[in-house]
Amino acid sequence: MSLVPAFVLITILAFILVYAWPSIVFNGTTFFTSYIWNVGISSRPPVMVRGFLVPPNASFGALLFIESTLLSSGLAILIAFPVSFLVSLSVELYLPGRAKRPLVSLIELFAGIPSVVYGLWGIVVLEPLLLHNIEPWMSANLYFIPGFSGEVLTGSGIIASGLILSLMIAPIITSVMVNSFDSAPSEIKQGLVSLGATKWELGKYLATGYSRSSTYGGALLGLGRALGETMAVLMVSGGIVNVLPTSIYSGINTMAAAIVAYLDSAIGQGTGINLSALAELSLFLLAISLVVNLLGRRIAGRGALRGVENDKF
């Protein structure tokens, strides 16, 4: 029975690979170099291109999706990492011990909120706030930072996606950090304090020294989750097509979101190449998610994850 997960995982990989194969051959490297994703004209009869029957005008360049995924996840980790560190510092060192369990549970509630609920909140609360208040202010005052100058057209895009993702991954990183602070031997902690370290110095040393591996491992696990997150990002990313982002206010379209968005039309498409292209996109997304996650687990080590494994990784 313990073989089931392995079997399932390998089956998923194998099937996705088989389905993706025509697209891999058909697209070659343009899949990663072009940002034009055109499903083709399905009302006209398919044409033969490079040995494949495809709808006229079809082209599958995933650069926009890849870039969008990296930008939103990157922003998410930039926000979530320091916030998680500070939260775990205050929970672990500054607040009284009995506040810890309820507070950590509250933070962990973030991991349980369904992603469509995040999306809904993003649409009704976050986007208007970004569109009318925050982004115009940033554009007017922070324009000297590269990527921060530009026109604010909608509230959806990189910032909204990054913020929502950061909320979703902060509990993961916080859990790992709190746990690693906890599991650092008290001899080390007392040793540090008895040399006159302040709480801040203690926390800083634990995070960057003693528990360094869990700190980075936790961040990678968070990143892994952000990369594959689908619905919330789909709802607040803007669903941009065929335009690369020009500033931090631009709309985007991540890999996961694009798969949902294009699957409907691909299903009805007779040649199957559209479906295959989405399978290739899935394969790539799956590959980087797995690599980041494995790396995170490897670095964090089993010990650091013990006790937090029942959280949503």
Binding site: S2, A6, I12, F15, L227, E229, M231, I259, L290, N293
Partner: peptide
């Protein structure tokens, strides 16, 4: 062997939900 199985189990949690969705549709 058990460690390898455990790893597969952990890794399965990191498969993006839409990838499972696409797999579900195709297969």
């Amino acid at each position: 062997v058990a460690d390898a199985m455990r790893l597969f189990t952990d890794v399965l949690t990191s498969v993006p939900s839409i990838v499972i969705g696409l797999f579900g549709y195709l297969v």
